[in-house]
Computed example of a mutant assay.
Amino acid sequence: MGRVRCTRQTDRSIAHQRKDETGILLNALNTMTANLQHLVGQLRDSAHSIASATAQIAAGNLDLSGRTEEHASSLEETAASISVLLNSEIRVFR
């Protein structure tokens, strides 16, 4: 039997015609390789989903921050107007 080389290519199965223990081991190796491919694919998909969700959360946070600043500015203006009105009323009643 020839040597099996370890490479970064996990998309190839080991073709053989063996029916002995070595054939059983090669079949198990092929199954393990297929399972590893599936797992790596799932991890890649999950990583892409996480990256997309993270970008959406960041955009939502930026939008919320902008709206919060707008509301804070509006509240400051309202508070200043109320303060002016109260000071005017206090002067009127004196």
Rank of each mutant, 00 (worst) to 15 (best):
G23K: 05
I57K: 02
L26C: 04
T54P: 01
L62W: 14
L36A: 01
A51V: 05
N27H: 11
G60F: 04
A59R: 15
L39S: 07
A55G: 03
S46Q: 15
E77Y: 09
L25Y: 09
N35R: 07
E69W: 06
L75T: 03
L62P: 07
M32K: 02
V40A: 09
E76N: 14
E21R: 06
A34I: 02
A51E: 08
L26V: 10
E77W: 08
G23I: 02
G41C: 05
A47Y: 09
S73E: 14
L43F: 10
V40R: 03
A34R: 10
I24E: 12
T54M: 11
T22G: 05
E77K: 08
S49L: 12
L43V: 12
E77F: 08
S52K: 08
D63W: 00
T54Y: 12
G23R: 05
L29T: 01
R44C: 10
T22N: 01
S49P: 00
R44E: 11
A51G: 02
I57M: 06
A59C: 09
L75V: 01
E77H: 10
I50F: 09
T22I: 03
A53T: 03
A58V: 14
L36V: 00
Q42R: 13
A72R: 03
H48R: 14
G41I: 07
E76Y: 13
R44P: 02
E21K: 05
E69G: 04
T54I: 05
D63C: 09
A53M: 02
H48T: 13
T33V: 05
Q56S: 15
A47P: 01
G41R: 03
T68A: 13
Q37V: 09
L64R: 04
T31Y: 15
E69F: 06
N61K: 14
S73P: 00
N30M: 00
A51I: 06
M32R: 01
G66H: 15
A58W: 10
E69P: 00
A34Y: 01
A28Y: 09
Q37P: 04
L36P: 00
L75S: 02
L64C: 06
Q56L: 15
S65N: 08
A55D: 05
Q37N: 07
M32T: 13
T68D: 14
R44D: 10
T33W: 03
A28L: 07
G60E: 04
A47H: 11
L36D: 01
S49Y: 08
A34H: 06
L36T: 00
S49Q: 14
H71E: 15
L29R: 11
G23T: 02
L43H: 11
